Amino acid sequence: MNINTLIGRRIRQLREARGWSLEALAERSGVSRSNISLIERGESSPTATVLDRLGAGLGVTMASLFEATAEASAEPSPLARVAEQPLWTDPDSGYVRRNVSPPGVSPIQLVDVLFPPGRRVAYDNAARGEVHQQVWMIDGVMELTVGTTRWYLEAGDCLAMTLDEPIAYRNPGTAAARYLVALSTPTMPKPRRAP
């Protein structure tokens, strides 16, 4: 399945599970109704910033937007084969992310990221419950600004944070950086219906 189609179906599934209209999600996320409609139909390639806003509006992590819509009768598999792991490239920064974890079986999500040199992406990180994140550098260097604190990470370094303030990622190096993001969502809010 095309990655934009997968993302669109997942956003629509999460929105409808809450009983929300396109307008309701637009209001909660700050993404226009027309843009959400294009994304849900798989006719738009959203940026990482837009996906982060939609995730925040839905009360889920961005990684959750890459999970395939499960059949109602199917039990989630504890195995995620590499060929089945969604791979996505941010059209703005060019960073490539692979959702490594099997969806729906654990409160931990793993994401493998390849970030091009000289590029930057920033997230507002609206509150979504208590979401913890760790970034473990595998190769290269990254500069992360969490709130007002700037961290410089090299291969082997690991930075822990809570997704409750703005975060910016920048690769100041001359080579691509690779890192693993681990997200833990022990208190993720349950889907809620609109009043």
Rank of each mutant, 00 (worst) to 15 (best):
G118M: 05
A63S: 09
P86N: 01
R128L: 06
A182S: 12
S93H: 13
E40T: 01
R28H: 08
N171F: 08
P195R: 04
M62S: 15
A24I: 06
L79V: 06
L25W: 12
P117D: 14
T187F: 14
I7H: 10
E71F: 09
A68M: 12
L180Y: 00
D157N: 10
E143V: 01
W151I: 05
R119P: 02
D92A: 15
T89K: 11
R120T: 03
R98N: 11
V60E: 00
I36F: 10
Y123S: 06
V31T: 00
Q133L: 04
A74H: 04
M142W: 00
R41D: 02
L65Y: 12
G59E: 08
G104E: 15
A194T: 04
R170Y: 03
T69N: 15
L114E: 15
C158H: 00
V146D: 08
L22A: 01
V100F: 12
P117C: 13
I7E: 05
W151V: 07
D157R: 06
A48K: 10
L163N: 06
S184E: 12
P46G: 08
Y169E: 01
G55Y: 14
R120A: 06
Q13D: 09
P78N: 14
I39W: 15
T5M: 02
I138R: 03
T185A: 02
P116H: 07
L163F: 04
I7S: 01
D124V: 12
V31L: 02
G19Q: 14
D112R: 08
D157T: 10
T145G: 06
Q133G: 04
V82L: 14
Q134E: 11
E130C: 04
R192P: 02
Y152S: 07
E40N: 02
P76I: 13
G55A: 10
P46R: 13
T185H: 08
A155Q: 09
R9E: 11
R28D: 13
S77P: 05
P107E: 15
Q134V: 12
V113Q: 13
L51T: 07
R98A: 13
W88V: 01
A127D: 06
D90Y: 12
N4P: 11
N171I: 07
W151P: 00
A48L: 11
S101N: 04
E16Q: 04
P186K: 05
E143I: 07
E165S: 09
R170I: 03
R120G: 04
A175I: 15
L180E: 01
L153Q: 04
V111G: 07
A177W: 11
L58T: 13
P76N: 07
G104V: 14
S34F: 02
L25G: 02
Y169T: 02
A24D: 12
A155H: 07
G147H: 00
A126R: 08
T5G: 00
A56C: 07
L22T: 01
Q134M: 06
V181H: 10
A26T: 06
V111I: 09
N99R: 09
G59N: 14
P191F: 07
L6H: 10
R178H: 04
E43A: 00
E71M: 12
G156W: 02
R28Q: 12
T47E: 03
V105G: 04
T174P: 01
A160V: 10
S29K: 03
M1G: 15
A24C: 03
L79F: 00
P117Y: 10
P102S: 02
G104P: 15
E154S: 11
L54V: 00
W20S: 09
T162N: 11
R178D: 07
S77L: 06
V60G: 00
